[in-house]
Design a protein around this nucleic acid. Structure first.
Lengths: 217, 217
DNA sequence: GTTGAACACTGACACACCGTCAGTTATTCT
DNA sequence: AGAATAACTGACGGTGTGTCAGTGTTCAAC
């Protein structure tokens, strides 16, 4: 990974042009915004360098000043989302206190972030299958959640909060479910309603990890 | 969908050439086998018509006599897997008797089939993101399980076997988890061990649908 | 056996997109 | 202002695609 300078509110730029936005940064941003614009309404498979740059003030060749190829651009978008997602996940992954409540909080946040950035998330996962580099990056992205969730499960198992089982495969199963379902539901418009998706995800996670609470209503 | 004539044992052909294997069927099969060969060891993104046909006795152009493009070929492979997967899923989806036992049986079968055909399954899901037609077909394939699982859940809810909740989103969540995890685990070699994956999937399904049994060991 | 029609196949072509590079134009700094 | 650097462009070669007119092959009917 490299920059990760993409503003958190994906579409809206930083309000202050501050001091001096060097020309190059300016054009780079213009390209990124054109890409977001495009991907919000059309699938990654229809994105070409020509198409993309025709929506900016520069010509096609200029693209290669800023990105090696389309996949590098997509990687930059992933960078922007990564921060937000890591952020909403912290309550359960790091926090102290009522585990079930923290889990619900994290999952609710996750659904919200993925709802807001669905098409972008989808573009990343779509693009990843066509490019080895980006595929590795995407797997790293997913893998870090596998690590974190597995660690948390093992910790709670040690405290007797979670039943004893092999944590890692279950962590992977739950994470893949999240990614796959969220991209499916919110990745292209019209997006699904977020509430049923949120409820389903919360149900599966809590049933699997903290069943006693769900068992005795 | 159209043919679905692909033999169940993916790599091995039907033993009997029977009566008269018309030339065209013969070449078609040759292409399909070359494709399976290729996809068993290399990702779909590296498959080109040239590459593929160089492993057969015919030239590149001949490919287009049998398939409109690579995605149509992949669709034919999906056809071959669909039958097997529908088949192993029937115990829980259709059967009568001990729901939990049937579910475990179906999931165990599913893991086995996906282990055996992992790279092919992965090729289909990879290819689907680059082609609108195939994407629709893949979604139909997944969607039929959403329908079937949701229906089964609702039926069991009616019988009081499963707690009351919105069945469809949960069915989708569980199905996406299966697809995503199985493709991730078995889609490229070296494949993961199937046992931990099987156990994780069974744990999540049973905890979510029949928690009382898992709850009180 | 010859013939003709359907079949299986091929080589060459036009197209779309990619990534590069030498050369041109704009911007920045002193 | 003028040099140095940054930003950009047009044209090119390369790879892969899908099509099509045409060649060879098979097979059935006469």
């Amino acid at each position: 990974m490299s920059h990760c300078k993409l503003n958190s509110s994906i579409l809206e730029s930083v309000p202050s042009p501050a001091v001096k936005p060097r020309k190059s940064e300016q054009t780079r941003t213009e390209i990124l915004e054109a890409a977001l614009d495009f991907l919000w309404t059309q699938p990654f498979r229809d994105l070409t360098v020509n198409e993309l740059m025709s929506k900016t003030s520069a010509g096609r060749s200029a693209f290669y000043q800023y990105f090696g190829d389309l996949y590098e651009l997509i990687e930059a978008l992933l960078c922007g989302l990564e921060a937000s997602i890591l952020d909403v996940a912290t309550p359960w992954l790091q926090g102290e206190g009522d585990a079930l409540a923290l889990l619900k909080k994290s999952l609710t946040g996750l659904v919200q972030v993925c709802y807001d950035g669905g098409p972008i998330l989808r573009a990343v996962s779509d693009a990843a299958v066509s490019d080895e580099r980006l595929e590795k990056e995407w797997n790293r992205f997913l893998g870090q959640f596998d690590d974190a969730v597995a660690a948390r499960i093992e910790q709670h198992q040690g405290q007797g909060l979670i039943a004893s089982f092999e944590a890692r495969p279950v962590a992977m199963a739950l994470n893949r479910m999240d990614a796959s379902l969220l991209i499916q539901a919110f990745g292209s418009r019209p997006r699904s309603q977020p509430e049923p998706i949120r409820e389903a995800i919360i149900r599966v996670w809590t049933s699997t990890l903290y069943p006693q609470i769900v068992c005795s209503p």
